[in-house]
């Protein structure tokens, strides 16, 4: 891993999504993007978990800010949100968390939030703090394009990527509208449902990847229900530029709460395995 010291006056040191996806593509790979909730199960352990991601092949990071009522998430992420909030995480501490990650990596960092966290803080303050902490992209899980005008403007003002989701239920017409607003990459929801580990990747996911690809040149990353290396391999081979893995990694934390060193080790080797499976594009 390259040592990295962030220089605030030189934002170019942070890799953009565009650069990262291009670089990964040039290597004939897909991007491996692991997710965790900032501060799960506590601030310091969570930093160490992210370090495992970075040291074991993550091409970008997806960091969730904990929320009390995460309607788009299944039980694994919900429980992680609660652990994080109980450990004392606040929105400002989440930004501090990102700054700490920026001390050791330059890969793109996207955050996954619920819109009330942004709204309550005030859009200007939230986006400016996001920019200053070293975030690349912001995805608000409950902010569809109809409500996203202010956020998109603020993102462009602070040179951040506002990221959107598309799902199997999204019509072609809607996909065309969404890709007009979306920057960085498009988050493709693999399953009909909330986040959570699942047993297999359905044909409908493969069809969706192809459908989305017909509408945009933006890189796409598939998330929700991607829980093992075969899934990662399947979505990359089906044409996705990246794979986002969340609940399956969080489940390792949940399982090992009484021995977090074991959790870190297991996460490290799991990440290595997941990254390997992105290498046959």
């Amino acid at each position: 891993m390259k040592p990295f010291k962030r220089d605030l006056d030189n934002p170019n040191q942070i890799q953009s999504y565009q650069e990262m996806f291009q670089e990964v593509k040039n290597r004939g790979e897909g991007a491996f993007i692991p997710f965790t909730v900032a501060g799960d199960p506590d601030f310091d352990t969570s930093i160490e978990i992210v370090r495992q991601y970075v040291e074991n092949g993550a091409d970008a990071l997806e960091i969730g800010f904990p929320f009390s009522d995460p309607v788009a998430d299944g039980p694994s992420v919900q429980a992680a949100d609660i652990r994080s909030l109980n450990s004392g995480m606040t929105t400002d501490k989440c930004f501090e968390f990102i700054s700490r990650i920026r001390e050791f990596t330059s890969i793109p960092i996207g955050i996954l939030v619920y819109y009330n966290l942004i709204y309550k803080k005030g859009l200007e303050e939230f986006y400016s703090k996001a920019r200053n902490s070293g975030i690349n992209g912001i995805l608000a899980a409950d902010l569809p394009l109809e409500e996203a005008g202010d956020a998109v403007n603020m993102a462009s003002q602070y040179d951040l990527d506002q990221i959107f989701m598309v799902a199997q239920t999204t019509s072609n017409e809607r996909i065309s509208e969404i890709v007009k607003m979306c920057k960085g990459f498009l988050y493709v929801v693999a399953v009909m449902g909330v986040t959570g580990a699942r047993s297999d990747i359905k044909k409908s996911t493969v069809d969706l990847i192809k459908r989305v690809k017909n509408h945009t040149d933006l890189p796409i990353a598939v998330g929700f229900g991607i829980s093992k290396s075969e899934h990662v391999k399947d979505v990359i081979q089906s044409g996705s530029d990246g794979a986002i893995v969340a609940s399956a990694i969080i489940n390792i934390i949940t399982k090992n709460l009484d021995d977090l060193d074991v959790a870190k080790q297991e996460i490290g080797s799991f990440c290595k395995e997941l990254k390997e499976s992105t290498k046959n594009r």
């Binding site: 819109y115 569809p144 409500e147 989701m165 799902a167 199997q168 239920t169 999204t170 009909m192």
Partner: peptide
């Protein structure tokens, strides 16, 4: 008011 929901629900 509005529709502050995940994309999956919009068509419904």
């Amino acid at each position: 008011g509005g529709i502050f929901v995940p994309e999956l629900i919009i068509p419904a």
